[in-house]
Amino acid sequence: MRLNKFIAESGVCSRRKADELIKEGRVTVNKQEAIIGMEIKPEDVVRVDGERIKVNTKFEYYILNKPKRVLCSNEDKFGRRLAIDYIKSKKRLFTYGRLDYMTEGLIIISNDGEIYNHVMHPRKKLYKSYIAKINRELEEKDLEALQHGVVIEGKRTAPAKVKRLGKREIRIAIFEGRNRQIRKMFETLGYNVDSLKRVKIGELTLGHLQVGDYRELTQEEVEYLKNL
Rank of each mutant, 00 (worst) to 15 (best):
K5M: 06
F6S: 10
I7N: 03
I7V: 03
E9R: 13
S10C: 14
S14H: 10
R16L: 04
R16I: 05
K17S: 05
D19A: 01
D19N: 13
D19S: 06
E20R: 12
L21C: 07
L21P: 06
K23V: 10
E24P: 11
N30L: 11
Q32K: 15
A34P: 10
A34V: 12
I35P: 00
I35R: 15
I35Q: 13
I40D: 09
V45E: 14
V45W: 00
R47H: 10
V48Y: 11
D49P: 04
K54L: 15
K54D: 13
N56G: 14
N56D: 15
F59T: 10
F59S: 11
E60Y: 04
Y61R: 12
Y61V: 08
Y62V: 02
I63K: 00
N65T: 06
K68S: 02
S73L: 04
D76G: 05
D76R: 12
F78L: 15
F78H: 15
G79F: 09
G79V: 04
R81A: 05
A83E: 04
A83D: 08
D85I: 06
Y86Q: 03
I87H: 06
K88T: 03
S89N: 06
F94G: 00
T95M: 07
T95D: 07
Y96F: 15
G97I: 06
G97H: 05
R98Q: 07
D100H: 11
Y101P: 03
T103F: 05
G105I: 05
G105K: 01
S110Q: 04
S110L: 07
N111D: 14
N111W: 07
G113C: 07
G113L: 01
V119F: 08
P122N: 08
R123E: 13
K125M: 11
Y130I: 03
K133V: 12
K133A: 00
K133D: 02
N135G: 01
R136P: 00
R136S: 14
E137P: 00
E139Q: 14
E144R: 03
E144V: 03
V150H: 02
V150L: 06
V151P: 04
E153W: 01
E153S: 08
K161R: 13
K161F: 07
R164G: 01
L165K: 15
I170Y: 08
I170T: 05
I172Y: 01
I174R: 02
R178I: 03
R178W: 05
N179C: 02
N179S: 05
R180F: 01
Q181M: 15
R183I: 11
R183D: 00
T188V: 13
L189N: 12
Y191M: 01
N192L: 01
N192Q: 09
N192K: 12
L196G: 07
R198Y: 11
G202M: 11
G202T: 09
H208L: 08
Q210E: 08
G212Y: 05
D213Q: 07
R215A: 03
E216K: 14
L217V: 06
T218Y: 05
Q219F: 07
E220K: 13
E223T: 10
E223V: 08
K226R: 15
K226M: 09
N227F: 08
N227T: 15
